[in-house]
Simulated scan of single mutants.
Amino acid sequence: MATANTPPAPASPLERPGTFKRLYLWTLSLAARPAAQLWLAVVAFVESSFFLIPADVLFVPMALANPRRAYRYALIATAFSTFGGIAGYALGYFAFDALARPVLAFYGKLAAFEALRACAGPDTTLLLLTTSGLAHLPPIKVVTILAGAVHVGLGFFVISCILARGARFFALAFLLRSYGPAIRHFIERRLKLIAFGGASLVILLYFGLKLLTGSGQLLSC
């Protein structure tokens, strides 16, 4: 039985003070390296299955430094984010207990994942793929693994990744190419809120249509 003197459970390595900030700054520093495009591909790939920092952190300063290549960077980020999503899907589909569960536990996302898996059917998971691609809601790595675990069709999964993540990166490329450094503050402070609002609207529209059409349960739990 726990007492007032019982020490708390050890925190995840990523919850220790300063860990996230150091990882963020290291990712940001990659934008100034000669192999920045390669690093963008790597970060976009690993973000979709196990890495904590989103590729946007690297993409934005790269596009600002070279606006003429903004759409090229958006294509790289979209393509490798989709490839990383497929890797996360495979973890959920083929190796959830052996590999995906420890990854989710390491990031402190296992409880959130189990709650989603208990309630989300394949169609709801596709909706979550859209909102996570647009606004990281829920985190991309959680939803890609979930898609594999509930056996969403791979073709639909890939299309949703391309459309949602492509929309995010190409919208950023357009803004950065058109407005340059002046738009950076807006992107860092406001764009996430707008994307969150858009993702919330997609969710509301989805559930509204489900209610109006009476097409089964909203959730499977």
Rank of each mutant, 00 (worst) to 15 (best):
A182G: 12
L104A: 03
A55V: 02
G180E: 10
E188Y: 02
K21T: 15
D56L: 01
L64P: 04
A41F: 06
L23K: 09
G153R: 09
G108E: 00
L30F: 09
L38D: 01
A167R: 05
A98K: 07
S215M: 05
V43P: 03
A182S: 14
P17Y: 10
F50G: 05
F80Y: 07
F186P: 04
F80M: 09
P138G: 11
F157Y: 08
A32K: 13
A35V: 06
A118S: 14
P139K: 02
G214V: 09
G85H: 01
V202A: 15
R117Q: 15
M1V: 13
L30A: 11
Q217G: 13
V202C: 15
Y89Q: 02
A105C: 01
A115L: 09
L99R: 00
A120G: 10
G18W: 06
G88E: 04
I159A: 15
A199C: 09
R22N: 14
G133Y: 11
A105M: 09
A36Q: 09
Y93S: 10
P17F: 11
A32P: 00
A90N: 02
P54F: 07
G198E: 01
A111V: 11
Y73D: 05
V103S: 02
A111W: 00
M1Q: 11
R72D: 02
L129T: 04
S12K: 14
L128N: 02
G108R: 12
P17L: 10
N66C: 10
A70V: 03
A74R: 03
L209S: 06
Q217V: 06
F156Q: 13
A32L: 04
F156R: 14
R190P: 05
A36T: 06
L28T: 08
G121V: 09
A171E: 02
A111Y: 00
Y73F: 15
L219H: 02
P181E: 12
R72H: 12
S132P: 09
A112Q: 14
A87G: 10
V143R: 01
A164E: 04
H151P: 00
